[in-house]
Write a protein that binds this DNA or RNA. Structure first.
Length: 662
DNA sequence: GAATACGTGA
């Protein structure tokens, strides 16, 4: 095992002769470069570091951006060089810190070698190994290290238990967690607040709430951490209501508890509740931090709440909250999901540290907003800076090919993903390929691909092929796909809508009637359409036919005027996708009152002229709304962005970015 | 004064 650090890259090279800044280490704004500069200054003054210097230095560089040193524990190695230079390798303090840093940075072998060599303060060094692996997200390694420690007969301390329990929880290893619990009880370290908290958290992370409560109830002393573990455990199980009850019962709440409940709402897709909790948090005198803001920005993204998303940046600068890589990534995603690629790109360009999430977010953002070629360029840039793409990155790349109509390129990327990057395609990747082929009109090939997939197609895949059949007028395969789709998902009202649309297009009115009959008989209900629009920081929700908005009267009369205007330029309502069994005239009303039309009427009433109208819809847009909005964008000179369940529609000058394919 | 518990992103 190498005890000498292998090629340490950059981080502390040149110290003490030059300052830290000249040493190839340029602290990014969110990265605290202070301790390194301090260390450099110390050496420059001829002072010798002592046993405590290196642990604090390592703590500081643990937060260094990955671009400074990547993999294999290079950061640890850089510091290791200095430790050796000053002959401090026998210091248990320095050695333990190094073990931890090596393990965290992926230098498991070096960490182990160092541990075996240092021999003193055994428990602490083992603890460092276990927790280091945990910090590096290698939970299995962490657990194995604990097993080795036990086998070597090294005494476990409370810190050992806390570290290994944390690894069990994060690695979802309930079996080992329960075994450690037994040892904890036998060891006699209880009662110990931190160990008990680690137990509660381990059980909560492993979704065993019963055991978590049992430990919690048995605790003589509890603190905010004990409570927060329960809150996040419940939230993680999707039981956000119960999480909220526990949250409300907590004797005190800190920023972590608040973030846990806010994020719980986000994970449960209760985005408005998440924002409401954030509002309450501001009243509670607990300051938000980067973690909180990531959840808040995510909620804004999902709601399409661009104004509020923008406001978070003002808020963060006022509150002194750093824009770290997590926040930056969340912002990129938020702008993308609000249909504002330009702003997403601005954030991307301003980011000093980027990781694979950053690249993936911008690739996806460009791709779904119809900038396929630029997305592919980004992918190549990502490869050039040696950031390794993963399966999500390829979803972005394949989506980009779909949007740019690059069938062959998409196929190439799919192959290179499998063979060069050794990523096994999942059902989503196949979905992209089906979409790619379907969109290009290669319906037969798409169907063949579905049948050759190593997994069963889901309703998304079949649905995308059905949509392709509609656009390309392939009724034969369309009927086939619809049948398979209904076997999979009998309540799927979209199937009937698309199929009926195709029948109508081929003048098969008898089939249209039969389809309608079938729907009536089966009692299939269409999920109500719902559109969100943000206005002056408020999120307004419209459901089809909904009259609950305070300005309802004005909105409906505005809508009537708009429809009259549209009819003057040749609009005629398209009711081929209307399924309720009512008179023709009422069918017209049904589509006039679709939620996105109400939202647009509201926007035309209340928003500033020339501003972009942004709507988020829960379902696929209907044909009629798509036609109507194209005309509205031309007639009123307004840009409209609609994000529906699967696509972005950027309407400008009478055209839609989806080129009528969705 | 080394190792330790709760909440982040595509």
């Amino acid at each position: 095992m190498p005890l000498r650090p292998s090629r340490a890259r950059g981080l502390l090279d040149g110290i003490p002769h030059r300052g830290a800044a000249a040493a190839g280490y340029r602290a990014a704004p969110e990265c605290d470069g202070e301790p390194i500069a301090t260390y450099a200054g110390m050496l420059a003054r001829g002072e010798r570091p002592d046993a405590y210097t290196f642990p604090s230095l390592l703590k500081a560089v643990a937060r260094a951006p990955p671009s400074c040193a990547r993999g294999g524990g290079a950061v640890a190695a850089a510091v290791h060089t200095h430790v050796l230079k000053f002959g401090m390798e026998r210091s248990p303090h320095a050695a333990s810190a190094l073990v931890s840093a090596y393990a965290a940075g992926g230098g498991g072998a070096s960490a182990r070698a160092l541990l075996d060599a240092c021999g003193c303060g055994m428990s602490v060094a083992w603890n460092a190994l276990i927790s280091g692996h945990c910090r590096g997200k290698r939970f299995g390694e962490s657990c194995l290290s604990f097993a080795d420690m036990v086998r070597d007969g090294v005494t476990s301390t409370p810190v050992t238990y806390v570290s290994v329990l944390s690894a069990c929880g994060k690695g979802r290893d309930l079996l080992l967690g329960a075994q450690v619990h037994k040892r904890v009880v036998e060891s006699g370290v209880l009662p110990d607040l931190k160990v008990e908290n680690a137990l509660v958290d381990m059980y909560a992370e492993c979704a065993d709430m019963e055991s978590a409560w049992k430990v919690f109830d048995g605790m003589r002393v509890r603190n905010v951490v004990s409570w927060t573990s329960l809150v996040s455990g419940l939230a993680g199980l999707g039981e956000v209501d119960r999480a909220r009850e526990v949250f409300d019962r907590m004797p005190e709440r800190d920023v972590v508890s608040w973030t846990a409940i806010i994020d719980g709402y986000v994970q449960a897709a209760w985005f408005r509740e998440a924002l409401e909790m954030f509002r309450q948090m501001q009243y509670s005198n607990v300051r938000a931090d980067e973690f909180t803001m990531v959840s808040v920005i995510t909620a804004c993204a999902q709601l399409g709440a661009l104004e509020m998303g923008e406001w978070t940046r003002v808020y963060m600068s006022r509150q002194g909250i750093m824009m770290d890589v997590f926040v930056g990534n969340a912002l990129i995603d938020m702008y993308s999901k609000c249909g504002s690629v330009e702003r997403a790109l601005e954030v991307f360009k301003d980011m000093h540290n980027r990781d694979k999430f950053t690249w993936t977010a911008i690739i996806l953002g460009l791709a779904v907003n119809g900038h396929g070629e630029e997305a592919i360029d980004m992918f190549h840039r990502m490869i050039r800076v040696s950031e390794a793409p993963d399966e999500v990155t390829f979803i972005g790349v394949l989506t980009a090919c779909t949007h740019a109509g690059l069938v062959d390129k998409g196929r190439e990327f799919f192959q290179s993903m499998i063979h060069s990057y050794k990523i096994a395609p999942n059902v989503v990747h196949y979905g992209c390929i089906i979409d790619l082929l379907g969109r290009a009109g290669k319906i037969t090939e798409a169907l063949e691909t579905i049948d050759q997939m190593p997994m069963a197609p889901n309703s998304t895949i079949l649905g995308s092929l059905l949509a392709a059949c509609r656009v390309h007028g392939n009724l034969d395969i369309g009927e086939l796909v619809a049948k398979r789709l209904l076997e999979l998902d009998p309540e799927n009202s979209m199937v009937y809508i698309l199929l009926s649309n195709m029948y109508a297009k081929s003048n098969r009115w008898q089939d249209v009637r039969q389809l309608r009959q079938a729907i009536m008989e089966k009692g299939i209900k269409k999920e109500p359409g719902c559109s969100l629009i943000e206005m002056n920081g408020m999120i307004h929700e419209f459901v089809a036919g909904d009259q609950s908005h305070p300005l309802s009267k004005e909105i409906y009369s505005k809508l009537e005027n708009v429809i009259a205007d549209l009819k003057n330029v040749g609009y005629y309502p398209d009711i081929t996708e209307v399924f309720v069994q009512v008179a023709e005239e009422e069918k017209h009303n049904t589509i006039y009152w679709h939620s996105e039309k109400l939202a647009i009427a509201f926007a035309l009433l209340r928003s500033e002229p020339n501003t972009v109208i942004r709507i988020v819809k829960n379902l696929r847009m209907c044909l009629d709304c798509h036609n109507a909005i194209k005309l509205i964008s031309r007639l009123y000179g307004r840009e409209v962005v609609v994000r529906d369940r699967t696509h972005f529609h950027h309407f400008r000058h009478g055209f839609c970015s989806c080129k009528d394919y969705w």
